[in-house]
Design a protein around this nucleic acid. Structure first.
Lengths: 218, 218
DNA sequence: GCAATTTAGTAATATAAGTCACATAGAAAA
DNA sequence: TTTTCTATGTGACTTATATTACTAAATTGC
C-alpha cells in the first residue's frame, strides 16, 4: 500500500519513516464480514492493524463457549497478537471480521525492530496495551458483577454504536453465543425489553428506540 | 537502595545504567501484611516494583464487591499502574499487601524517560503487559466459564502456592470477598471439600491435603 | 471467669440462569 | 405450492447461587 494511502487511513501515525516502513513491510489482507480470522491454538504470524471495517475479539473456553471481549476499529491493533507474537505462543482468542475488513499485517520481527527504531511505534504499542487492558476490565466487570439483562442491554448499545444504526441484523443465537449464554435466555430477555417498548423484534432484526441508551442508564 | 542490593533483588535487571537509575530515583516503601496500598479512585504517583513479599490485586465494583485478579511477586510490577500513570487516570483496582512487602516506587516521568533510554526497561514493561494480560484472561475465564466450586478449588491452590504452605490462615468471609460471593456459599463449598477429605477446617485455618492439586485436576 | 465479638454451620427460601420440550412462524428451497 | 429449514416464543423444570435467619463455637477484652 502507498504511503499516502496509509497516512490517510492511520491519521495517528505521522512519522514519515514509520509510514514508509509500514508501506514497505506491511501486507494487506481482506476479510469478508463474518470470516474467522484467527482461532484459539492457531499461531499468529503478524501484528494486524485494522485499516477499514472492524474485528470482533472473543474469548473461548474448552467446550467452545464464547465470550465477546471488544472490537478492534480502524487504526487499532490487538494486544493479544502482540503478546502471542512476542512469546511465540498460539492465539488465546478468536477474531472474526465484524464487517468487510481490511488489515495491514506487520511481520513480528519488524514489530520488534520498530519498537527500538520508531518512538511512534513504541507509543502505538503502549497505547494499544493500555486501551485493551481497559476493555478487558470492562468485559471482566460485566461477567463478574452484572446480571444477564444488563449485559444484554450494554451489548445492544455496543453493537448499535459499532454499526452506527438502531437496527441490529442478527439472531438471538448469535447474541447468546457472544454473551456466553443460551438462546432461550436471550429470547426471553429481549421479549421483556419489547414489552417495555424499548425495542421491537423481527426475524433476524432488532429495532432499537433512539433513546435506548438513556433509558437503560436510569 | 544500593545498586548491589537491587541487583540481588531484581536478578532480571542487569543493565548497570538502569540499576543505577533505579537506585537513584526509586523510593523504598514498606507495607505490613494486609495494608491497603491503593484503592479505586486514588491517583497513582509511581510505578511500584515488588522487591520483597507480594501484593494482591483486586477489581472492585461500585457496590464494593471485590474480585481477586492476581498477585504481584518480587521483580514484578502492575500493568494497571503503568496504564493509569501514563493516562493520569485514577486507579482502577485495589492493591493490598499479601505479606509484609517492600516495593521500589519509580516516578512516572522516570518510567517514561527510561522506556526510551534503557532497552531493558522497555522489555520489562512489555513483559509486564504480557504477563498481566495472561492473568486477566485467567481471571476472566474463571468468572465467565467456571462454577464457584471450581473457582474455590483453584483459589486454594493459588494461595497455597503463593504462601508455600498447605495451611491457609484466613476466614471464609475473606475468601468470599475475593471470589465476589457470600460467606455462606464458601462455608458450604468448603464443607463439601472437607466431606471428601480433601481439606480439614478449623477456625481461621484450612488444612489442605498434600495431593490436593492432583485431586482437583481429575 | 464472664460478656462481647468474631467466625463458622446450616436450614429455608428466593432468584437468576440454564435446560428441555415443543409449538409456530417466516424464509428458502424444491 | 408444498416442503424444509431456520429462527423465535414460551411453559415447565432444574440447578447454581444469593439471601435470610438463626445457632453455636471459639476468641478477645474486660
Amino acid at each position: 500500500m502507498q504511503v499516502e494511502d496509509l497516512r490517510h487511513k492511520l491519521p495517528n501515525i505521522t512519522d514519515p519513516g514509520l509510514l514508509k516502513a509500514l508501506s514497505e513491510y506491511g501486507n494487506i489482507h481482506e476479510f469478508k464480514a463474518g470470516k474467522v480470522i484467527t482461532e484459539p491454538g492457531q499461531f499468529i504470524k503478524m501484528v494486524p492493524i485494522v485499516l477499514e471495517g472492524s474485528i470482533k475479539i472473543l474469548r473461548m473456553d474448552d467446550d467452545g463457549k464464547e465470550l465477546f471481549l471488544y472490537f478492534l476499529e480502524p487504526g487499532e491493533t490487538c494486544a493479544l497478537s502482540l503478546t502471542c507474537c512476542s512469546a511465540s505462543k498460539p492465539s488465546e482468542i478468536k477474531a472474526v471480521a465484524e464487517e468487510n475488513t481490511v488489515i495491514l499485517g506487520v511481520p513480528i520481527q519488524k514489530h520488534e525492530e520498530w519498537t527500538d527504531q520508531f518512538k511512534q511505534w513504541k507509543d502505538f504499542v503502549s497505547m494499544t496495551y493500555q486501551s485493551r487492558f481497559q476493555e478487558m476490565l470492562v468485559a471482566l466487570d460485566a461477567v463478574a458483577f452484572k446480571r444477564m439483562d444488563e449485559r444484554l442491554m450494554r451489548y445492544i448499545v455496543t453493537k448499535m454504536k459499532q454499526h452506527k444504526t438502531n437496527e441490529l441484523h442478527t439472531t438471538h443465537q448469535e447474541i447468546a453465543n457472544e454473551l456466553g449464554t443460551s438462546r432461550e435466555v436471550i429470547s426471553r430477555l429481549l421479549k421483556q425489553l419489547e414489552k417495555k417498548k424499548w425495542i421491537e423484534l423481527g426475524r433476524n432484526v432488532i429495532y432499537i428506540r433512539d433513546d435506548f441508551e438513556e433509558l437503560i442508564s436510569n
